[in-house]
């Protein structure tokens, strides 16, 4: 059981990392969601094996209950990720409305400094972007 969960977490991290490394903002957001899910899953795994619900009442042996702390932590983390993902989606929409593309561009100042050093080698930024889309 734990091994399967670990494998799932590993896959989530792998796919998420691949998506984060893309240029399109929508893919990056999906990638971040997957990576956060992987991290949350890891916390649940870190809590050990399951047990009876952690509600202490008469007739419940404390040794058999599931660890409630990782669940509380994961709930908090999920809420935070949810909020930030919503913000990022709003940003992606803003970026699309302002620039008409979904791409994350290079820093213009970095490009300027790079051009000063290598005036010829620096490729045309638009060309560079099309390559990634293709």
């Amino acid at each position: 059981m734990s091994l399967i969960s670990l494998a799932v977490a590993a896959i989530l991290f792998g796919v998420g990392t691949y998506l984060i490394l893309q240029r399109a903002l929508s893919r990056i957001i999906i990638g971040l969601g997957l990576v956060s899910h992987g991290a949350n899953l890891l916390i649940v795994i870190g809590g050990g094996f399951g047990g009876v619900p952690p509600i202490l009442s008469e007739g419940v042996d404390p040794a058999t209950v599931a660890d409630p702390l990782p669940q509380a932590m994961v709930l908090t983390a999920i809420v935070i990720t949810f909020g930030v993902t919503a913000l990022l989606l709003a940003l992606a929409l803003r970026s699309y409305l302002l620039t008409g593309t979904d791409e994350v561009e290079d820093d213009p100042e970095d490009r300027r400094v790079a051009r000063e050093v290598h005036p010829v080698v620096e490729p045309d930024p638009d060309e560079d972007m099309h390559e990634v889309v293709a």
Binding site: I43, G46, A77
Partner: peptide, 8 residues
Amino acid sequence: LVLIAFTY
């Protein structure tokens, strides 16, 4: 979060 999971 990964760090927290590993630590815990």
